[in-house]
Each structure stands twice: as structure tokens, then as C-alpha cells.
Design a binder for these strands. Sequence first.
DNA 1: CTGTTAGCGCTTTCAA
DNA 2: TTGAAAGCGCTAACAG
Lengths: 342, 342
Amino acid sequence: MSESDPLQPSANRRPARLKDIAAATGVDTSVVSRILSGDAALSVRPETRRRVLDMAAHLSYRPNRAARALKTARTMAIGMIVPELDNVAYAIIAQGADRQASKSGYALLVATGSVRDRLAALEGRIDGLLVGVATSETLQVGEIGGDLPAILVNRREALGIPSVTVADEQGAALATAHLISLGHSRIGHIAGPQNADTGRRRMQGYHSELNTRGLEFIPELTAEASYDEAGGEMGASRLLALRPRPTALFVANVRAAIGAMAAARRHGLSIPRDISIVGFHDAPVAMYLDPPLTTVRMPLREMGGQAVESLLGLLDGRDVEDVCVTAPPELVVRASAAPPNA
Amino acid sequence: MSESDPLQPSANRRPARLKDIAAATGVDTSVVSRILSGDAALSVRPETRRRVLDMAAHLSYRPNRAARALKTARTMAIGMIVPELDNVAYAIIAQGADRQASKSGYALLVATGSVRDRLAALEGRIDGLLVGVATSETLQVGEIGGDLPAILVNRREALGIPSVTVADEQGAALATAHLISLGHSRIGHIAGPQNADTGRRRMQGYHSELNTRGLEFIPELTAEASYDEAGGEMGASRLLALRPRPTALFVANVRAAIGAMAAARRHGLSIPRDISIVGFHDAPVAMYLDPPLTTVRMPLREMGGQAVESLLGLLDGRDVEDVCVTAPPELVVRASAAPPNA
DNA sequence: CTGTTAGCGCTTTCAA
DNA sequence: TTGAAAGCGCTAACAG
């Protein structure tokens, strides 16, 4: 009477262990283990294998993750730290990462906040880390993850940590080129934080495209801003107060672009008649703005997938290089940019 | 020469174990364990404690989570499944949950997607689950988490799983009352999916406020829509085609409200002159829309915190009731709602 | 005040 | 083709 029938699975009994399957089938736990984990090098009578498999299913056996992790020193999970949850860009990156991780049998655990804070919570639960914070708290190599293998996502820093990025310069150049083709020559740039790699690279792309097309880069036409509506609003307010006023604005982020549009309205400017605006990254909301926002779409999902691949490389002890996802940025033309009115 | 000095911590050596501290201090592992985990019932010479603590710090000891989890059968982590990452509401709920979890020494692990999919990844890594999917795939009690204690967040279902919600009816009533006070009597409602608890409860609040104020509930003035821009756009298009046209719209979600605003514009209607719009939930973007969107702010952070509290109650074996967070909804008046023009 | 001991559930070498 | 045995790092009951 000490135990109820161990062959009957039941909602509220302790989960089945390897040992239970062994007992129920008369096969040793070590063999059961090898059968269930699909050990190819194992030769076992087909009938034995069947019996074990059936019993495992019948008892709805789930391997105990803690025990396995203790034994193998692997958690089969990877962590990802992003600055904020409600950000389309990171949501898409995470999607790509998640899919790639699943493919390799890894779980992706997402956490928000600063690396320093979140690391404590994640430590010991993951085998490696994707660091997706774009604006840099200054990160020291050691500080980043103890000895946790890590990949920088969407940013590059001289930390000895491999990075995976997209072609921000190229994307920014594309946006700028669009504006130039439309006939604009006085084009402002609401840049992202310049302590962030992404902010710098987008600025760079803007700058070099201007030069390529024979236009002068004018620092005054440039405003550094945070990647949110408030930042875009402030940045645009400054640039729109300039005389002569820029006829177009390339904004380094969708949220900031929304802020910039608000600023334009407050200045009594009509978009795109008086001022053209192009955003960076695409988001569903862009299509529903007034006017719908022209943006450039970056291969973010691919970046997430590549980041996981790089990390798994690191875990396998391979050397991993910085990689820049090659899928080309794509201009999504909507209605917020038009030729300047002469 | 088999090992380098175990007293020197070094970047790339295997992490220190309890055993190492024991060896280095001449104190038994069991005592070290009790000292480091702050066992109150332990009496130990202050000097011994110091020595152990110092050595632990010196070797930068981090307890092995897998071993601890195996031993204690506790992971000290809780999971949260949300339908999508880029959603302010869930971002805020998660923030509240995270904070409360940390307070109790738990880590919060966030995953996106369907419960069924994500559960496999989370299983064995968490002690309990916060289920924050608002639109219901039909969920069976057993299906939800094996025997994992779970709390439903932001939705109520007859599943035998305790829920934590906010006063959606009250919030919806507040929005509706605002419109009525402004003088509107023909008020449409773009509702959320009616297979989702939140959608139903907001509809309910709209309905009953209408009745309370002596206004008739007219089903035709109601459109069911998904919680995104496209849904809001379509719902609003339908309602705005009605004759006589509603003079105001209460939209069950910010994203849908943005879509509704776009629809109004496409119909050549000016907001709020021709049509007033009130959204549900607040988001930074609301302030930067044209016109800035009036919304009702719900106590989402509190809901997240309460959800964790309820879950921890479950983990402690306590009985847990459904709870509705009492902090009152708050009307955030901006410019998208005004008196109807007679 | 401190140490001994057993064992959590699993994987893996080695032997039969 | 299968089994025995050891041990991952930790905690907790019990003994001294």
C-alpha cells in the first residue's frame, strides 16, 4: 500500500523517472537512457526498444532537466537580453533567434533590462548569451557574462565578443538616396544615440551617401536623439527651426519618426508637402500613420537566426567571426516622402 | 602540477564549488552550504563564517543551479507566456511581474507564442507559469502545463486555474462615460475578439454604461476586430459606413485605435470634429498621434505583480482565488474626443 | 558548533 | 545486446 500502481500514469503523481521505466520494463536505466536519447551507437533488440518507448510514452516520461544539466553541464538554453520588450525590432530579432534555437534543440529565454541586472537571473540557466542592447552602458568583456559565451546582436563593440549586425550604413544610405532622388538637397538626419553603434553606423551611411551624391554633410542638419517618440520630437523641433529649413528628414528609428511627424505638425508643416520624412526599420504602425511612413526594412529575423548560429559555433568551440547579415535592406515606399515643392 | 593554485580565482577555470571553499577553509561543505544560504538556524563561530564568506567572495563562488534544482526540486524561476513581444501592454505586465518575482528571489523567464509550443521549452526550467495569452486557443486544464502550477493573467476562463485581471468592464465604462458626457449618444464600439475574455469584458462595460446612462445598446454599432491596426481599420470602416454615422468610437485597444483613426481619415472624416475616438490602454505613441489619442490607462504593472503573488501562493500550497486588481482605471484625456458638432 | 552521510535523476565508461 | 557503478554539485537529516 506504499504506492499506487506505477504503471498507471495519473495527473497528480510525481513524474516518471528513468528508473520507473527501467523497473516497469525490466531493462536497465542506462539502456533506457540510451534508447530514449536516441543514442545511435547503441544496438538493442528492436523489441526491447519498442517496449521501452511504449512505456515511456505511457508514463508520459519527461526527462528531468536539472539532473541532465547537472550531469552534462549543459542547460540547452540560451538567453537573450534586450533593452525593452515593446519594440518591434527586438521582437522580430527574437523571433528569428527563437526559430533557429528550436531547430538545434535549444530554448530561447528572453529577459529585459540591463545586462548586469539580468545576468544574475539568467546565470546558471543558460549555456550562452545573446546581448541585444543597442545603447551601450559601457561593457567590459569580463563583466558581460562571467565566462558565458556571448554574441553581440545588432551592435559591434571592441570587446572581443563576436557580433552579428545588419548593414545599417547601407540601409541609411538607401533612405538618404531615396530622398536625394526625389530632388532633396537639404536633408536633415535625426540620429540615434551616438554612444550606440547603430546610431553611429546609420549616421555614417547618411553621411557617405550625401558625399557620394556630391552633397555636403552639414553637422548642423544633424540631431542626436533617443530612439523613441520624445527623442524624435525634440530632434525634429531643433532641425525644423533652422533657416533655411531642411526639406527632408531621415530619422534613424520608427518611433523617433513618429515623434518627428508630430513635431512637423506642431510647426504647421504638412508632410510630405513641406517636409519629407523617412524612417528606419519597418513596423505595422507605419502604414497607418498620417501620412503612411516610408521606411527601410532591415533583415532583422535573419540577424536573430544568425546570432544563434554564431553562438552555437562558440559553444562548439569554433572560432567565430563578426558577421554582417547580407540580405539587402529594402525601401518601403509609402507617402511620407515626396519631391520638395520648389 | 595537476591543478593551478585553487586559491587564485582566474577568468578561465572551472567555477568554484562548495567543495573548493570547504577545502580552502578547512570547513565542511555542509557547513559552507548552510552559511552561504544564510541558514538562520545555524550557529557558527563568527570567525568561521567570515572565513567562509571571504573565501566564497574571493573565488567568486556561484552556486550551481542545476545541482541545487535537482536537490531541492525547485528551479526558482517562473515562466510567462505572452502572445507577442511587441505589445506595450504585455511589456508593462511583464515588468510588474519581473519586479515582484525578483523580490522573492525568483527569475522571470519570458516566452512568446502559443502555450502548447512554448511549454515544451519551458518545462523543467520553471516552477510555475503565468499564462498571458488573451485570445483563447481553447485551453484544457491538463493541457496548460502538465502539473505545473499556473495563473491566468489578464483573462478569466473556467479552467480551474486562478486568474488575475484588471477591471476591464470598469475601464470600458469609463471610456464610454467620457464620450457620453461629451454629448455623444450614437457611440460605436470596435470590440476585441469575442473569443477573448478581455474582448468580452470590454464590450460588457461599454454595454452596461450605455444602459446606465439611458442609452440603447445597438448591436449594429459594434464591430468585432483583432487587436491590431488592421483590425481597427476594418472595424471602423464598417461602422463609419453606417447611416446615420456614429459620432464617436470606443476602440478596445491602442493599436486598433490607430487603425480606426486611419479609417476615419480615409473616409474624409476629421477627428474629433466629425468623429471622436477613445482607445484602451495607454502607450507612449498615443501622445504623438494626430490628434493625440485619448485613452484609458489600466493598472497593468500591478496586475503583473499580483499575478506573481498569486502564483507564489500556489507554490506554497495555499488556496488562491481569482483576483481583480482594484487600482482604478484612469482616463487619459488628450485630443481625439470632443463634443459632437450639432 | 561542526562533520558524516545519503541521495536528488541522469549519463557514461567499462565490463560482461 | 545489456548491466554495474560512479559521479555531476548540492542540501538536509542526523550524529557527534
